[in-house]
Design a binder for these strands. Structure first.
Length: 378
RNA sequence: GCGAAUAUGGUGAAGUGGUUAACACGGUGGAUUGUGGCUCCAUUAUGCUAGGGUUCGACUCCCUAUAUUCGCC
């Protein structure tokens, strides 16, 4: 019996946006959804209750980081990642493929796997499709990612072809190695950059395997917004309707709306929590850099339309002060707000799809947020 | 009152007789996308206490004033 069930509840009449529901062993997830990132078994700065309060139904953990510290065996001993970190809703684990390419220097990619140096102590490490699965099995996440190569941008057609062939072979090996199919769902990752033929080929090959869902990888690596959308246009038509689609690493409001419009169900991104730690908030009227002098005497909440804990009790002037004074409450409050802002955005999106007015919703959001369709992000 | 030392941006300060006054903090603005948790980038003194003088040229040498600090009466 499959661990992950996707139900397509409704498709928007005027776009490819879709309303759905994913059921995992730990929870039901309404889609389209946003998943906060908790790389090292914690959504940075927040407690379980605070994350829950934002409306998040699923969060991410990271294979690479948890493998190195504290070690997947230790987490298994603790009773699995859910128990270890006190999160009883769903968890998705990334395979570590991205980290190997974003963090590690001196990597050596071979058919068997990737040899690279530890990003902190320089020791030699080796990660393969089978090991990534073994780690993810130990962690016990609801949704697992295959170990893939995230090719750089830009990459030549020739390089991309070879890389994707290898990613496909790795995906097959990972699927074979996955021993807990009844409790954990494994996703395949579509690569191919902005080459239509390679994206299509990758979809065709990976859909031959019965993955629980499909991820679009290789985006948010520095490419312009139009190309990110092209990568979706070149992939989504070739993916099955009865499986969830996950756009990896995308979390700016504009890009989320573009993805939903094309038929994406799941998003994750470090953006809301990272910019929060650096003092920037997402609001319905655009982005606010709270350390800016103009907020010194602004005694209003971050966003009048937000119902989060931060907006309920605190003002911009207070947040400005906390940042200036380098107080750790600031990253916490802004992280709570930013995540809830995106969770609320997803709620709005789901409601709009239900009522067949997604495109109007998107246009209104763009207008208010202060960007047009050509803007990269904010 | 006498003697001595020091006077460089918001702060701590480096500095040389010769075109753009080091660096750090702070200030201001920006970045951040499958997270290396206080990061990165840009910008921030047309001026070196004031007034004279020496010199081709002085923030740098000399004189005076002022301020601060220390010591002695």
């Amino acid at each position: 019996m499959a661990a992950i069930k996707y139900e397509l509840l409704k498709k928007d009449k005027n776009s490819n946006a879709r309303l759905g529901k994913i059921t995992t062993p730990h929870s039901v997830i309404d889609t389209p959804c946003f998943m906060p990132v908790g790389t090292q078994a914690t959504v940075k700065a927040l407690s379980k209750e605070e994350v829950e309060e934002t409306g998040a139904q699923i969060i991410l953990g990271n294979t690479y980081h948890l493998w190195l510290q504290p070690g997947h065996k230790l987490i298994e001993k603790a009773g699995g990642l859910h128990k270890f970190m006190n999160w009883d809703k769903s968890i998705l684990t990334d395979s570590g493929g991205f980290q190997v390419f974003s963090l590690a220097k001196m990597r050596d990619i071979k058919e068997e796997g990737v040899t690279f140096k530890h990003h902190k102590n320089g020791s030699k490490l080796f990660l393969s499709p089978e090991l990534a699965i073994e780690i993810e099995n130990s962690l016990g996440s609801d949704i697992m990612m295959s170990f893939d190569e995230c090719p750089p941008y830009p990459a030549t057609h020739e390089y991309m072809e070879k890389s994707v062939e290898r990613t496909i072979r790795w995906a097959k090996r990972g699927y074979e190695a996955h021993k807990k199919k009844d409790t954990q769902g494994l996703f395949g990752i579509i690569q191919g950059g902005i080459y239509p033929d390679i994206r299509k080929y990758c979809c065709e090959e990976l859909t031959k395997i019965d993955f629980a869902g499909y991820s679009i990888g290789g985006v948010s690596v520095g490419e312009p917004k139009e190309e990110q959308n092209l990568a979706l246009d070149y992939s989504l038509p070739y993916l099955p309707l009865d499986k969830p689609r996950y756009l990896m690493g995308v979390g700016s409001p504009g890009a989320i709306l573009d993805g939903v419009e094309r038929g994406i169900d799941m998003f994750d991104c470090v953006l809301p929590t990272r910019i929060a730690r650096h003092g920037t908030a997402m609001t319905s009227r655009g982005r606010l850099i709270l350390k800016n002098a103009c907020f010194e005497e602004d005694f209003t909440p971050l966003d009048k339309e937000c119902d989060c804990y931060c907006c309920k009790y605190y003002t911009k002037a207070y947040l400005h002060h906390l940042i200036k004074a380098d107080e750790m409450l600031a990253p916490r409050l802004i992280s709570i707000h930013n995540i809830q802002f995106l969770e609320n955005l997803m709620k709005g999106i789901r409601k709009a799809i239900k009522e067949d007015r997604f495109l109007e919703f998107k246009a209104a959001f763009y207008e208010k947020y202060g960007l047009d369709n050509n803007d990269k992000d904010f």
